[in-house]
Design a binder for these strands. Structure first.
Lengths: 344, 344
DNA sequence: TGGAAAATTCAAACCGATTTGGGTGCATTT
DNA sequence: AAATGCACCCAAATCGGTTTGAATTTTCCA
């Protein structure tokens, strides 16, 4: 059923019906009620495509999520982030258009969305160091919000980020305070901005105590369970093995835990682990006492906030950029303890 | 830039340009080349909304993913499923419209998509026993493919499913063959069709050997790590504790593994575990020897296949329904072994 | 009761593409 | 030279809404 048919049914003009549904003041309250009622019973909804063609608003937000080319891995945080953003969109009657592309094809995906006018705004996921996306988006004049930050870009764009540097600096300090000296860092790809900041936080804490930066104690790559396991196994087999691991994701930390167990060691006693916890819905970190000591920040809340900001910028452009850096909690769990005297 | 401006720029009529870009035969090859070239250099793309209004095709597929109301959990398999489907969509130049809704509001979401004509087809996720969606979608005449199956619905709809019943029957048989008698089932919500089928498979194998159905050995609920841990802890503390666990997801199995460790037991020796493995990209099940003995089926491949089928039904309606039931692999890993003589 | 102001409603233009049903120009045939 | 065919190209209608500017009806007050 289209507008014309529906309005004939009511004995009104399309204009009036459209206004009634749109909530414009030019239509009598009683008429509006009648129209709304009829729309419900007859199941009329304005055609989305026609409406957005007429208004120029697509009523949709684009998300481009990258899968890494080699391992085709999809970062599991996306599910929760999208769930958070999705809540906001449905309330505002916006659609969420999802585009899954290989790393590197992202720019093309953004450009297409922009040119075809299929979205009113874009969320940028997983900013990297060589990121051309922010510049591109600025060109297109499409509102956007970055989840994370772009390393070197000019600073006048919207973003929501966790203070990754500080989080990992604090986490490292905690381990150092516990007496650990050989602290391994298992990080995400350090081409990613968040991973780089975490590394910097880790390094600055180490350096502040006069400790060296040991290449054999650092890993960066896909944050999968397997990588956590393999890497930790390798490091634990070294002669001067680490007594603590600082890990960038729960999933990876679970791999580390497995490696510790396999080596016949006890997590929280022989080896300490601190991880970042995105508060994924299916990966609660224990009940009363957290399993892992962790830097914690809800990625779902970040999704909600990014969406809110974006919708706000769309309805009121030319505001000052919103830039939020969230402090993450450092919560103590059972996975950390004082450094053991020595191991051989 | 719109079509009119672009065509003026070329000194051609909008019609010709549209045909050139659309690949129609009525336009000289040389003209087409020139038009395509100019489109590239000037960055012209037909406005998506206008195009779909004119053609009647939305060029978009709707996915409605539910979050469970209580725990706001998003099943992590969605990320990989969407990634699989997304691959197919981008190749075919379709958009993916994602709607995240609370359990129970799904029907409304489907109806809205259908009425507003914002999608050409729909993928139905996580069919349940009381599912009104299939009936609704049949009414709307919108093509759809179900990932999974609807328990009691008429059978003339498209679906791709794993043979969950058989998978869990085989898994149970394996454990029985190893001598286990007290076998626990840690399942997803048994309102979900897949979980019910898995339970049936488990029960039929048990019954076939004359074993009872013990309520205290069965759990169904959210497949989170915590639930796996908590439930396994509780069961292992029972006086007649299970010697084996059959688990519906890797995430949950990781919780079970943790519980086994915490109880001072060794997985694969004292307690056996078999899990279903959706082959999530970030949760590889070990390298050479799988960690978990598992029934295995790629959810990403299922995403691809569902998308393929849907696009095919859209381009050629009124074909016979495609109904695929995939056999899942049963792979042997390190988490299973013969039942221990006895434990106290 | 008449007339101005306010409250409603409507006809028509517009958004940006696709597509129908012709035209135009040129080569070929008669 | 007229007729036919073919290869190109185009004007205009269409999709289903929103919105502008004008027309109509109602309300209010002198």
């Amino acid at each position: 059923m289209n507008l014309r048919e529906f309005s004939e049914l009511l004995g009104l003009s399309p204009t009036t019906v459209s206004r009634a549904l749109g909530g414009y003041p030019e239509v009598k309250e009683e008429t509006r009620r009648k129209v709304a009622e009829a729309a419900r019973t007859h199941g009329y909804r304005p055609n989305r495509r026609a409406a957005s063609l007429a208004t120029g608003r697509a009523m949709a937000i684009g998300h481009v999520i990258p899968t890494s080319l080699n391992h085709e891995m999809v970062n599991p945080v996306f599910a929760d982030f999208l769930a958070g953003a999705g809540e906001i969109y449905s309330d505002a009657n916006y659609d969420l258009i999802l585009s899954v592309v290989n790393d590197g094809n992202e720019v093309r995906a953004y450009r297409q969305m922009a040119r075809a006018g299929s979205v009113d705004g874009i969320i940028v996921h997983g900013p990297r160091d060589d990121d051309a996306r922010v510049a591109l988006l600025r060109e297109t004049a499409l509102p956007f919000v970055v989840h994370g930050r772009v390393p070197v870009a000019p600073t006048d764009y919207n973003f929501v980020d966790v203070d990754n540097r500080r989080a990992f600096q604090r986490a490292t300090d905690l381990l150092l305070d516990l007496g650990h000296r050989r602290i391994a860092l298992l990080n995400g790809h350090e081409t990613m901005d968040f991973a780089r900041r975490r590394r910097d936080g880790y390094l600055s804490a180490m350096v502040a105590r006069g400790l060296p930066d040991c290449a054999e104690l650092r890993f960066d790559g896909e944050m999968s369970e397997q990588n956590g396991y393999r890497t930790a196994c390798g490091m634990l087999a070294q002669q001067d093995a680490p007594t603590a691991f600082l890990v960038s994701s729960m999933i990876m930390a679970i791999g580390v835990r497995r490696a510790i167990h396999d080596a016949g060691l006890v997590m929280g006693q022989d080896v300490s682990v601190v991880t970042h916890d995105d508060m994924l819905s299916y990966l609660g970190n224990g009940d009363d006492v957290p399993i892992f000591t962790a830097t914690r920040s809800s990625v779902r809340a970040a999704g909600r906030r990014c969406a809110e900001i974006l919708l706000d910028r769309i309805s009121r452009p030319s505001q000052d950029p919103v830039q939020e850096v969230w402090e993450s909690d450092l919560i103590l769990g059972a996975s950390t303890g004082p450094a053991p005297r020595s191991r051989t």
